[in-house]
Design a protein around this nucleic acid. Structure first.
Length: 561
RNA sequence: GGCCCUGUAGCUCAGCAGGAUAGAGCGACUGUCUCCUAAACAGUAGGUCAUCAGUUCGAUUCUGAUCAGGGUCACCA
C-alpha cells in the first residue's frame, strides 16, 4: 500500500542513507520550479558541508542508492537529487482519496477550542463600505478555514454603535434634520447629516463641543438621546442584515459597543485598583512606557473611548468563551489600538493577552486617497454588489441566454467576483478601488474558477454514469498536473489556517482551475475508451476541490453559468 | 520626527523558514469554436526582483542602512 504522502516517502527513502534527522530532511526538500526536473528535490549542500565532499558527487552516489516504486525516476542533476513521481500512481491515489472523502477532503486537526473572531463591525448610521467587505469576508473565510482544521470559531459582529460620533449625529439631526427623510432612506440621510456636521464643524469648532455634549448625555441615559440613537441603530441594522444576506454571511453574535456601556465603570475602577491610571491633561491614561504612546482610557469630560469599550469586550469574551485565540479582523491602520489593548490587558495581569491577535488588512483607497466617511468620500458596498450583479446578468445574456435561474447565477457570479477579488491578494496589500477590476469576469478572477467548475459539472451531467473507484490511473502530463494540485489541497488548507490568510486558498483555486482548463482543452474527456472512468474521476475530484475552495472563501459555485 | 506596513514586467500581483533558466493575470500583438460551455486554450513581446552594504559555497528571499509610497502618533473609531 503506497502512502498518500509522497513527500513523506521521499523523507523515508532519504533517511536510510543520510545522516540527517527527519525534520532536517523535511525542511530541505523542495519543489523544483521546473516540473520537468522532478516533483521533489533534495539539495545536498547540507551534506557537502558535513562530509566535505563535492555536492555533485554526493548527489550522484545518493541517487544510485535510492529506489522506490512510487517514483518513476530518482536522478541526480548537479547538486540535487530529483524525485519524479510515477504519474499513474499519484493520479490514482489522489483521485481515490478525494472521491472517498468527498467534501471532507482536506479536513484535518491543527487545534481545537473556541476562537471568537471580531469581524465586519460596521458603524451604525453609516453605509457599509468596501473596507467592511474586507473585514467581513476575510473574517468569514478565516472562520470557515479554522473550522476545517478543528477549531470552533465564533463570528462576532461588534457594531460601532457608541461614541462621540453619535453625539454629533444627534446634534446634526436635531439641528437641521428631517424626520421624513430619515424614514425614507435612513442610512444615506444620516450619513449626509454626519458629513454636513463635519463640514460645518470646520467653520465653527464649537460644534465639536456640542457633539461631545450630546454623547455625554447619551452615555448618562438621556431619554431623548437614547430614543434617537435606538431609532438610528435599528434602521441601520435592518439595512446591514440585507447586505449580509446578499453575501451569505451569518454571525454567531451581534453585539455593540453600547452593550458594554455599563461595564465602563468596573473597568475603570479595576484599572484604578491596580494603580495603572494616571491623570494627564484632565483625562485618564495608562502609561505604557517610553517607547509607546499612552492609552487614553477616559476623556476629560468622563466619557468612554474606543479602547475602554474594547477592554471590557475582550475580558467579557474571555469569560464567556474561554477562547484559545481571539481574533480581530480590523484594518492595518488600527494596529496601534491593538498593541495598546494587549499592553493594557497585560498590565492588568491577564496573561491571555497573548492570545489576542490583530488580523490586519490593507487599506482600500480611491484615486489614491484614503476613504473617509466624514469627508463623504466612500465606496458603498451595496452599489458595488448591485453593479457586479447587473454586469453578470449582461454576461449571461451574451454567453448563455437560455440559462435557467439566471437571476440566482448572476447573483452568485457578480457577488463572487467582488468577494474573490477581495480575497485573492494577500490581506495586507493595499489596493486602489477600480470597479472595472473588481467586477472582471476573465483571467484571475472568481468567475474564472466558477466557470471552470461549471464546465466540469457539465461534463459530469453529460457522462450520465457513476464513477467507479477502481482503475483511476492516468499517465498524461495534463492529468498529472491537475492531480498534483489536488494532492496539495490539505497542505494549502494548513498553510492558510496558520497564516490566517484566505488568499492562499484563492490562489490555489486559480492554479487548479488553470490546470484543469488546460486539460480540458487538450483531452477529449467524454470519449468512450477504457480510461473514461479515470478521466471522469479527475473531473469530479477537481469540481469537488474547486467547490470546497470557493466554499471556504464564502463564494458560491453555480452548477451552470 | 517615532512606530507599523509596502517597494518584483507598462498595470495588478505571485514566488521568498536562502538554492538549479524569476512566474501569473490584465493591457498589446498572433492563432484556435462543423469538436465535452471560447467567462476558455495555445503562442509572441515585456525584468539590473527600489538602491547600497553585510551574513553565506549561494540572497528576489535573511540582516542593517538609504531612498520612495501609504498608515498612525491623546480626548474619532
Amino acid at each position: 500500500m503506497l502512502s498518500m504522502n509522497f513527500k513523506q516517502r521521499v523523507i523515508t527513502d532519504l533517511q536510510a542513507h543520510v545522516a540527517l534527522s527527519e525534520e532536517q530532511i523535511a525542511s530541505l526538500i523542495e519543489r523544483p520550479k521546473n516540473a520537468k526536473l522532478g516533483d521533489y528535490a533534495f539539495p545536498v549542500f547540507a551534506l557537502a558541508k558535513i562530509e566535505h565532499k563535492n555536492p555533485v558527487v554526493i548527489a550522484r552516489d545518493l541517487a544510485e542508492k535510492l529506489s522506490d516504486p512510487a517514483f518513476s525516476q530518482i536522478q541526480a542533476v548537479g547538486p540535487y537529487v530529483n524525485f519524479l513521481i510515477a504519474h499513474d500512481c499519484l493520479v490514482s491515489e489522489t483521485l481515490h482519496e478525494v472521491l472517498t472523502q468527498q467534501t471532507a477532503y482536506g479536513t484535518q486537526h491543527i487545534g481545537s477550542g473556541n476562537v471568537p473572531i471580531d469581524m465586519s463591525s460596521p458603524n451604525i448610521a453609516k453605509p457599509m463600505s468596501m473596507g467592511h467587505l474586507r473585514s467581513t469576508m476575510i473574517g468569514n473565510a478565516i472562520a470557515n478555514i479554522l473550522t476545517k482544521v478543528g477549531y470552533t470559531p465564533i463570528k462576532i459582529n461588534y457594531l460601532g454603535d457608541w461614541g462621540t460620533q453619535f453625539g454629533k449625529l444627534i446634534y446634526a439631526y436635531k439641528t437641521w434634520g428631517d424626520e421624513e427623510a430619515v424614514k425614507r432612506d435612513p442610512i444615506n440621510t444620516l450619513v449626509k447629516y454626519y458629513v454636513e456636521f463635519h463640514q460645518k464643524a470646520e467653520q465653527d469648532p464649537s460644534l465639536d463641543a456640542q457633539g461631545r455634549a450630546w454623547f455625554k448625555k447619551l452615555e448618562s441615559g438621556d431619554k431623548e438621546a437614547l430614543y434617537l440613537w435606538r431609532w438610528f441603530r435599528d434602521a441601520s441594522l435592518k439595512e446591514f442584515k440585507r447586505i449580509y444576506g446578499e453575501l451569505d454571511v451569518h454571525f454567531d453574535s451581534i453585539t455593540g459597543e453600547s452593550d458594554f456601556n455599563d461595564k465602563m465603570t468596573p473597568i475603570i475602577s479595576q484599572l484604578e485598583d491596580k494603580h495603572l491610571l494616571k491623570t494627564s491633561q484632565g483625562a485618564k491614561i495608562v502609561d505604557l512606557g517610553e517607547d509607546q504612546n499612552p492609552a487614553l482610557i477616559q476623556k476629560s469630560d468622563g466619557a468612554s473611548l474606543y479602547i475602554t469599550r474594547d477592554l471590557a469586550a475582550a475580558i467579557y469574551r474571555k469569560q464567556k468563551y474561554d477562547f484559545v485565540m481571539s481574533l480581530y479582523v480590523v484594518g492595518n491602520e488600527q494596529g496601534e489600538h491593538f498593541t495598546q489593548l494587549k499592553a493594557v490587558l497585560k498590565l492588568m495581569g491577564y496573561d491571555w493577552s497573548d492570545q489576542i491577535h490583530h488580523i490586519p488588512f490593507g487599506l482600500i483607497t480611491s484615486g489614491g486617497k484614503k476613504l473617509s466617511t466624514r469627508k463623504g468620500n466612500i465606496i458603498m458596498l451595496d452599489k458595488v454588489l448591485k453593479d457586479a450583479v447587473s454586469l453578470a446578468h449582461e454576461q449571461i445574456a451574451v454567453k448563455n441566454p437560455d440559462l435557467e435561474n439566471a437571476d440566482q447565477v448572476a447573483h452568485d457570479v457578480g457577488v463572487g467576483a467582488v468577494v474573490f477579488h477581495d480575497l485573492k491578494n494577500e490581506r495586507l496589500d493595499n489596493f486602489d478601488f477600480d470597479l472595472k477590476e473588481v467586477v472582471r469576469f476573465e483571467g484571475d478572477t472568481g468567475p474564472y474558477v466558477q466557470y471552470t467548475n461549471a464546465r466540469a459539472q457539465s461534463i459530469l451531467r453529460k457522462a450520465k454514469k457513476p464513477i467507479e473507484l477502481t482503475s483511476l490511473a492516468l499517465t498524461d502530463d495534463a492529468a498529472f498536473s491537475v492531480a498534483k494540485d489536488l494532492a496539495e489541497f490539505p497542505e494549502i488548507i494548513k498553510k492558510s489556517a496558520e497564516r490566517f490568510e484566505p488568499s492562499v486558498i484563492a490562489k490555489f483555486a486559480l492554479n487548479l482551475a488553470k490546470k484543469f482548463n488546460k486539460y480540458y482543452a487538450k483531452v477529449k474527456i467524454l470519449s468512450d475508451d477504457d480510461q473514461l472512468n479515470a478521466r471522469l474521476a479527475l473531473v469530479s475530484a477537481t469540481s469537488l476541490v474547486l467547490t470546497e475552495s470557493l466554499r471556504l472563501l464564502g463564494v458560491h459555485a453555480p452548477q451552470r453559468m
